[in-house]
Design a binder for these strands. Sequence first.
DNA 1: AAATAAAAGATTGTATTCAATCATTGTATC
DNA 2: GATACAATGATTGAATACAATCTTTTATTT
Lengths: 230, 230
Amino acid sequence: MYKSSTRSFPVYDSLRQAIIEQALKPGVKLPEDSIGDTFSVSRTTVRSALVRLDAEGLVDLQPNRGASVAVPTIEEAHDIFEMRQCLEREVMQRLCKMDAKPIIKALKSHLAEEKKYLHVDTTRSIRLAGEFHILLAELTGSKILANYVNEIVSRCSLVLARFAQAHSAKCGLDEHTEIIAAIEAGDAERAISQMHQHLHGVQDRALLNPDDQDKDNVSDILARYVTPNA
Amino acid sequence: MYKSSTRSFPVYDSLRQAIIEQALKPGVKLPEDSIGDTFSVSRTTVRSALVRLDAEGLVDLQPNRGASVAVPTIEEAHDIFEMRQCLEREVMQRLCKMDAKPIIKALKSHLAEEKKYLHVDTTRSIRLAGEFHILLAELTGSKILANYVNEIVSRCSLVLARFAQAHSAKCGLDEHTEIIAAIEAGDAERAISQMHQHLHGVQDRALLNPDDQDKDNVSDILARYVTPNA
DNA sequence: AAATAAAAGATTGTATTCAATCATTGTATC
DNA sequence: GATACAATGATTGAATACAATCTTTTATTT
C-alpha cells in the first residue's frame, strides 16, 4: 500500500520502528523541524509520514499542536487487545483449513531465528516475537488480514510501552512452539485456544499494573522525589 | 482519529463520500491540481487528503504518476468480503452479549430512516444501508472495531462499483429487520447466521458475474460494439 | 506507412516561504 | 505572593515555486 520509492517512506518506516521498539515512548513530541533535520528532508516530507502514522493510530496528530507518539488510555488498551484476539483467532481458523506443509516449514524456520537470538540480542528478540504473529497472518494469504494484524500488533507494542514493566513484552517461545504444533495437527480449536491463552498472558502482564497509569505525569513523578523538610 | 479543523479534512471527506457513492468510479484519475481548484485549496492540502485515502485503501497513490480511485482485483474483492464477514461476525457476537434495550432502540430508529427513503431517494437509501452496518459496529462500544468495519464497508462499495451491476448494492431491508430481531432475542448464533447470509447475498450479487471482469478494459468493451463486416 | 526518437506540455515530488496559532516567559496589578 | 495580562519565541498550517518525472505530440528515419 505504501510505496517505498518516495522520500517520506524512510521517515515513516524509521519512526514506526522506533515506536514499536519503544525507543520513542508514548507521549513524546515529534516536531517536524527536528525530524526533518535528522533525515535531511523538508517538513513537507516529514508531514506526510506523520499523517500516515496518525491514520494507523501510532501517532496523535493534533491541529496546531503537532504530532506526538500516541498515548493509549487503559480503555483503548483493552479495546486493542480484544481486537487482536479477534483477528488472530481468524488467522488460526484459516491456517488450520489450509495445507499445513509449507506453513509449518515457514513457521519452524522463523522459530529457529527466535531461538537463535533469545538471550543474545534482546531488541531483536522482541522484534522477532512480534514478527511471528505477522508471519502467521501473512501465511493465510490474505493481504488485508495481514495488514490489520500488522497494525494491531504495532499498537499492542504501544500499549506495552505505556503500561507494562520493562521487557514483559517477551512472547513466550514455548507458546509459539505449541501454536505451531496445533496448526500442524490441523486442530483449529486447539490452535485458537493456545493463541487465546498466549495473548491473554501478554495482556495480563501488561495491564495488571494499575499503579503505572500516571507514568507520564511529570508532577506525579516529581512528587516522589521531593525531599521532606529540605 | 482525523481532526476536522484542518483544511484537508473537507477534501478527504468529499472524496471519500464520492468514492463510496460510486460517483468517482474505480480507476478514475485524481489530479491534485483540479481537485485543489474545486475546493480552492493548494496541492499541499489535497495531497495530505490523498495520502490518507491511500492508507485506507480507497485510493491508489503511485509514485510520479499520481492518485486514482483504487481498482480492486477479483482476488482482493474476495479478500475484502471475507474480512468483512469476520469483522461483522465479531460485531454480532459482542452485541448479543450486551444489554439489548438501548441497542435495539438505536437500530429501530435507524431502520425507520431506511424505510423512509427506500423508494424515494436511491442514493440516500444506499448510504443508509451501509450506515446500518457501521451503526452496529459503533454500538459495540469498540472504537477500533467500528473503525475497521467502517473501512471495510467503504472498500466493499468500491468492490461493488467495480464488479456489480448497477444498484445491486442494495442491502435488503428485510434482512436488516431479521438481524435486529436476532439481537433482541440475544441469540448470537442466529444473529451471526443471519448476518452471514445477508453479506453472502450482497457478495453473490457482486461477484458472480465472471464476464464483467474486463469491464475497464477498453478494447474488450469496444469489441462488443464492432459491427461485423462493416 | 510504421516505427523510433526528440521535444513540448502536463503532473507530481519536494523545498521554501509567509501567515497563523500556540506555548512560555516576563511584567504589571490586585 | 498570587493571578491576570502582554510580549516574545517556537511550531505548525498552507500556498507558492522550482526541479524531476511522466505523457503526449511532433518530427525524423527506415
